[in-house]
Simulated assay, not measured.
Amino acid sequence: MAQLNYLISFLTVTDLFISGVISSATFTIVNKCNYPVWPGILTNAGVAPLQTTGFALQKGESKTINAPSSWGGRLWGRTQCSEDSTGKFTCVTGDCGSGKVDCAGAGAAPPATLAEFTLDGSGGMDFYDVSLVDGYNLPMLVVPQGGTGVNCRATGCVVDLNGACPSELKVTSNDGAVAGCKSACVAFNQEQYCCSGAYNSPDICKPSSYSQVFKNACPSAYSYAYDDKTSTFTCAGADYLISFCPSPNTSQKSSSDGQNQNQNPVAGNSPEYNSTMVYEGALDVSGSSSPSMCMHVFGSHAIAGSVAIVAAIWRLCQHF
């Protein structure tokens, strides 16, 4: 009887673990784009999955997901998605090939901006990054909330790389609009760009002129395979806010309204992103004495705040 009770208790805890009720973190995913986004999620092999692998977020919508302890995987946004007459679901960028809204264990077809996580990793720290190694399809920002650590800070790519994409890397939709920007590895499949074969070493594989386009625009995001030093971040005890289009980059075409959105300059070159707006416009973070305090201020404004102010705060927090 004791063994039976132990087995029942074990199965109950295991069931809660797998379903995500017992969690080490929550992901709040927000769509601030002027068009629908369909997030996709792929869990690493051998890890308890999240309770969903894909769903729709209309403009302004958000969804919170519980992550089980030690979860690891990647999350991305799919754009310009639709169903054909047979009910098959496909997307112009980030498609996972399942034919459904749920990705069901399939990853994103490049190009796609990826948020990558390993929770409760070495030393009990969460490891996370935003990667453009598989290319870019839309702006994304990851903001830790309530966490600690010297490298616990926001990361992402908040600019419109589609507008600045080299012609040989562009992915276009049916109407000819730029929908995504391939990485050089994806576009050319050559060892020097993929850090493979004879280039499978950080001492040999160096940034290319193509990866530098990504790195110059988004300094904290992975731009190529060995871009670890400036692109991997760690937190302990954090939840995570993941925002699509946290700044006013809306060059994607909406699959629901059929209207082209206005293209905006790259944030780093636009006067709208001058950091003095934080002081003159609405919010002062000058009293923030640490990255975690600065990001706490950021997190409190990241959903409802002005996109220009959000982008400016994010830039200031990177200077700590």
Rank of each mutant, 00 (worst) to 15 (best):
L114F: 03
L114Y: 04
L114H: 02
A115P: 05
F117P: 03
F117W: 09
F117L: 09
L119N: 01
L119Y: 00
D120K: 12
D120R: 07
D120C: 09
D120H: 09
D120N: 15
S122F: 12
S122C: 00
G123L: 09
G123P: 04
G124C: 07
G124M: 07
M125S: 14
M125D: 11
M125G: 00
M125W: 04
M125C: 00
D126W: 01
F127G: 10
F127I: 10
F127T: 13
Y128S: 07
Y128I: 05
D129S: 14
D129R: 08
D129Y: 01
S131M: 10
S131K: 05
S131R: 06
L132F: 07
L132C: 05
V133W: 01
V133H: 03
V133F: 12
D134M: 07
D134F: 01
D134E: 14
G135M: 04
G135P: 06
G135Y: 02
Y136Q: 09
Y136L: 12
Y136T: 07
Y136V: 08
N137A: 10
L138Q: 13
L138H: 02
L138W: 00
P139S: 07
M140S: 08
L141A: 13
V142A: 08
V143Q: 07
V143A: 06
V143M: 06
P144K: 10
P144C: 08
Q145K: 14
T148P: 00
T148H: 01
T148V: 14
T148W: 00
G149M: 11
G149I: 08
V150I: 10
V150W: 00
N151F: 13
N151M: 13
N151H: 07
C152I: 09
R153Q: 15
R153T: 15
R153M: 15
A154W: 02
A154N: 15
T155W: 02
T155L: 08
T155P: 04
G156Q: 08
C157K: 00
C157N: 03
C157G: 04
V158A: 13
V158D: 10
V158L: 13
V159Q: 12
V159W: 02
D160C: 11
D160H: 03
D160E: 11
L161P: 00
L161D: 02
L161I: 12
L161K: 01
N162K: 10
N162Y: 06
N162I: 02
G163P: 02
G163K: 10
G163C: 05
A164W: 00
P166G: 11
P166V: 06
S167F: 02
E168G: 00
E168R: 06
E168K: 11
L169Q: 03
K170R: 15
K170H: 01
V171D: 03
V171G: 03
T172V: 15
T172K: 14
S173C: 06
S173V: 04
S173G: 15
S173M: 12
S173Y: 08
N174M: 12
N174T: 14
N174I: 12
N174L: 14
D175H: 05
D175M: 04
D175A: 12
G176R: 05
A177P: 00
A177V: 13
V178D: 04
V178L: 06
V178A: 07
A179Y: 02
G180V: 05
C181Q: 06
C181D: 05
K182C: 03
K182S: 12
K182R: 15
S183K: 05
A184E: 14
A184G: 14
C185E: 07
V186N: 13
F188S: 11
F188W: 09
N189M: 15
N189T: 14
